[in-house]
Nucleic acid binder design. Structure first.
Lengths: 245, 245
DNA sequence: AGCTACGATAGAACAACGTTCGATACGACG
DNA sequence: CGTCGTATCGAACGTTGTTCTATCGTAGCT
């Protein structure tokens, strides 16, 4: 009934009399392999059977470490958020709080670009223990140096997180197999969409026509940076602290 | 092999010799019931078996109308986005393009508040036919009246959509059963979280302590409005068109 | 050393799901 | 009355998360 508390359990293997092995896991190895599975082939590739095979053990063994797939996902997410948090804490402190905020948000977004599946599960658990809350705290600390009310600070961080998540969800959209197979790369895929848009009636879709060239081959990071910049500008204006101009 | 093209197929019923019924669906009824299922019990409640039972027919019949669950989800989403689009088109045109943008974004967000499951699936298909692209067009049109480059317009709409989606994902988080059962309402749930936060070390979590009172019992719509306002102010500044001040 | 209690592993089975198959009913047209 | 295309349905298949029950291996005790 109890859960493994000692994380010092090393990955060791012992031999069974009849030659069959008995795998020996650890919370660390389970999480690491789960994340590897997610990284390599996306969310749908993470199944208990696939994970068990990767660990060289049985399916039911995983249930010794996690009570459900939900918990597995939560723990795996928290695991990588831990590394993001470390990246953010390594960031050099800047003079301008808003510059700090931007740097943190970009670090977070970069991590999601590397791991698109994060976009969907990120912010699922605001458990008291766990790295999400610590990340939230770190994102909020720069706002303490801005001239804002508590409510404005709360809303400001929510806004920044919202922009990150909003862009991340876009990113997390599983490409429709063709590009996963490598048969079509992302640029061609975008280009095909753009081409279809160009054939729409310009009178009925004036805006789509206006931006189709920008959409075609656009960079996700650029898109995110622009969105982030808009909220940061709004925030700077709200704080009344000019850029110096 | 063909798909139903005539949407005039009425919901009629005929009697089987042995007394068993044969249900008669239509694309409309399938989508309507699918949406009803989603509305009543969330995304996980929409299964082919549950939907078939609701339609009074067999499971396989649904496959006459949709080729997969993915397509069912896409069509259902598009179905309700159609109503959102209608709401947005009914909006009175305002003098200020940014006021238009705000009104549209709020209408969209309201729809997601009513249907939290929308947050996850919204923006899944940017198919050329379909209401998502039309919605995107409508959201973009106000930017045509702003003094911006095409790229800025593209990024502006992406930013607004990002804020909506970002807040929506927060909303779409399935409450952990307790509040679904009605045993605990949302306010108590938030309050419990807030209480846990208050017990954290203030030195380690200064920001969390600063905003915990705001978090406790906060309103999601307020949160969204604030986030939206930040990007809109940023946008207004970018367009160089002052509010009049 | 032998015994025991518990930490940890695993195969088999279960229920639910998306999906496919083959059979069959119905209405329209000849 | 037979035929064809539309539409429906029960049954089955494969995969998934999860549970049950049996077992192994080691640490700790006598």
């Amino acid at each position: 009934m109890a859960r493994p508390q000692s994380r010092t359990a090393e990955a060791r293997r012992s031999r069974h009399p009849d030659g069959r092995r008995r795998a020996s896991h650890s919370m660390e190895s389970v999480l690491t392999e789960a994340v590897a599975l997610l990284d390599e082939a996306g969310a749908q590739a993470l199944t208990f059977r696939a994970l068990a095979q990767r660990l060289g053990g049985g399916v039911a063994s995983i249930y010794w470490y996690v009570a459900s797939k939900e918990e597995l996902l939560d723990r795996a997410t928290d695991h990588v958020i831990g590394t993001v948090l470390a990246d953010i804490e390594r960031l050099p402190a800047l003079d301008d709080p808003i510059d700090d905020l931007r740097a943190m948000a970009l670090t977070l977004f970069d991590a999601i670009v590397d791991r698109p599946w994060l976009g969907a599960y990120f912010m699922r658990e605001t458990d008291v223990q766990g790295n999400s809350l610590r990340l939230y705290e770190k994102l909020g600390e720069p706002t303490l140096r801005l001239d804002l009310t508590a409510r404005q600070r709360f809303h400001a961080v929510s806004a920044v997180v919202g922009v990150v998540v909003g862009s991340a969800v876009d990113l997390g959209q599983e490409p429709p197999q063709e590009v996963l197979d490598g048969a079509v790369n992302r640029e061609d895929f975008l280009h095909r969409y753009a081409q279809a848009w160009r054939e729409l009636d310009p009178a009925e879709f004036p805006f789509v026509h206006e931006i189709v060239d920008e959409f075609d081959g656009h960079d996700d990071v650029d898109q995110f940076r622009s969105a982030l910049e808009l909220t940061l500008t709004g925030l700077r204006l709200q704080a009344g602290t000019g850029t110096g101009a």
